[in-house]
Each structure stands twice: as structure tokens, then as C-alpha cells.
Simulated scan of single mutants.
Amino acid sequence: MQNEGPYFREAGAGPGVVCLHSNASSSSQWRGLMDQLSGRFRVLAPDALGAGKSPAWPAGRVVSLRDEVALLEPVLATAGEPFFLVGHSYGASVALVAALAQPGRVRAMALYEPTLFSLLEQEAPGGEAAHGIRAAAADAASAIDAGDPAAAARRFIDYWMAPGAWDRMPEARQATIAASMVNVRGWASALFGDPTPLQVFRSLDMPVLYMTGARSPASSRGVARLLTEALPKVTVRVFPDLGHMGPVTHPAVVNDEIARFLAQH
């Protein structure tokens, strides 16, 4: 995909670490981690397509996770090789696809609940594990069509964080998330439509820290079940009190785990 490069934040010096954020978020998600790592690492946190200050989601065409990786290429090149990849949710899915494309560039990965729902569809088309997120994405897209981005955001956030989470959120944060929901169909298409078979992930021989929350929805826990069996050098960390949005709701806990992992590799 031909496009201008993404906006990205940068801090520190040392081995490169590229941090990829979740849907309905931006590079600002990683400010705390950047502060924590910048004494030892060169940390780069880009905005994904349609997020923050990066180019808008292109109209009239299907966007894949590979397109997201292509957009990131200037950031990956700036990081130097080999670099670390850190990702949450959609960003963790992009990190996995980037690692498959050029595994020799990646030193290690720290991932919090990749949302590669295509793997659930491969295992059981239309199956129960993906039903909740499929319905949430469809409802959110219908709300966007009806001109109600706040309703779309409520459906999306309450699915990932628990009912009532949207109403408890500060208004300024609500406005940012609601504005991002115009991309919800694109997010779902990229995640459900990724063609990578599960067995391909067995070729990723770099160390992977795979973090999950015990309170997360069945969809992301289902993806974790598949990927943690496939990845050959995986370390699994389950946070008993966290959900899918753990890196946002409890950044210190998750960031400490990431920092320990990077220091070991």
C-alpha cells in the first residue's frame, strides 16, 4: 500500500523497541512504558492507520494486517536490527504478521492478547469462541451507519471491558474513542480475514512473552489457547485480576512484566 509514513513517538537510546497499540487507541497508550524503558532502549511507538496523527483509514478498499505492517516500515527501519516488538490486541496481531514477514529482524516479542480472530474461524467457522466479538463488531458498525458513534463505542468498549465501562469513562476519552469507531468494520475485516494458517506461527523461533488477562472475553482467550500452543519459544503470563484492556487499565503491572522480559533478551 502506497501511503505516507505513520506518526510515531520516540524516546531513549539503545536496542530498538517498537510498541503497537490497540484499536480505539493511539501511540499515547505507551507513554508510561516509554518512560520506563528509555534509559536502556530506543523506544518507538507509532500510530496505526486511522489513529492519532497517522494517515486516515483509506476509503473504498479492503485493508489487511499486511498493509498495517507496510505503513510501519519506516518505523521498523528506524528501530535498527534486531528490534523488539511490543503489541496489545490489534497491535499485537500486527506485530505477529510483521514478525512472520521478516523474522530475522525481530529479537523478541512481548504481546498482550493478540486478536487474530481468523485463527478461531479456521478452527471452527462461525464457532462460539468468536461469536461475542463478531456480534459486538456488527452492532458497532450498525451504529456507525445510523450516525451514532457513541453507541458504537459503548458496544465495543463494554464488550472488551465489561458492561458499564463506557459510561464510567471520562467524556474527553469517550469523544476520542467514539471518533475512532468509524474504522470498526475495517478492524474486524483485517482480523477475521487474515489468511495466515495457525501452523505458520510454529516457524517463529524468537522468544515471545504472551500475556493474557483471566477476566478477558472468550474471543481473545481462545486466540491465546491456539497461539500459545503454536509458538515454539513462548512464555505465558496470566494476570488473574486483569481483562483484555490490562495495558490501559493497569499499565504499571503490565509494563513491569514487559520491562523484565526485554531485559532478559
Rank of each mutant, 00 (worst) to 15 (best):
M1A: 15
M1R: 08
F8S: 02
R9F: 09
R9G: 07
P15L: 15
C19R: 02
N23E: 13
S28N: 15
W30G: 06
G32L: 15
L33W: 03
L37F: 07
G39A: 13
A45T: 15
G50A: 10
K53N: 11
S54E: 04
P55D: 08
W57C: 06
W57N: 04
V63P: 01
S64Q: 11
L65H: 14
R66M: 13
V69C: 09
L71M: 13
P74N: 07
P74K: 04
V75T: 08
L76M: 12
A79R: 08
F83H: 12
L85W: 13
V86L: 11
H88V: 12
S93R: 03
V94S: 05
A95Q: 03
L96G: 06
V97W: 04
A98I: 05
Q102N: 10
P103R: 07
R105I: 14
V106E: 14
V106T: 10
R107K: 14
A110M: 07
P114M: 15
P114L: 14
E121A: 13
E121L: 10
Q122I: 11
E123V: 07
A124F: 08
G126M: 07
G132L: 13
A136L: 03
A140G: 09
A140K: 01
I144N: 01
D145K: 00
G147M: 03
P149N: 05
A150G: 03
A152W: 01
A153W: 01
R155I: 07
A165E: 00
W166S: 00
W166R: 00
R173E: 12
Q174C: 08
T176A: 10
A178P: 04
V184P: 00
A190R: 00
A190I: 03
L191V: 09
D194L: 07
P197I: 13
Q199T: 10
R202L: 11
R202C: 09
L204S: 06
D205L: 12
M206Y: 15
M206N: 09
S220Q: 15
V223A: 11
A224N: 04
L226A: 01
E229K: 05
A230T: 04
L231W: 07
K233V: 13
V236H: 09
R237C: 13
F239C: 01
G243H: 06
M245Y: 05
H250V: 08
P251F: 04
P251Y: 02
I258R: 06
A259M: 12
F261T: 13
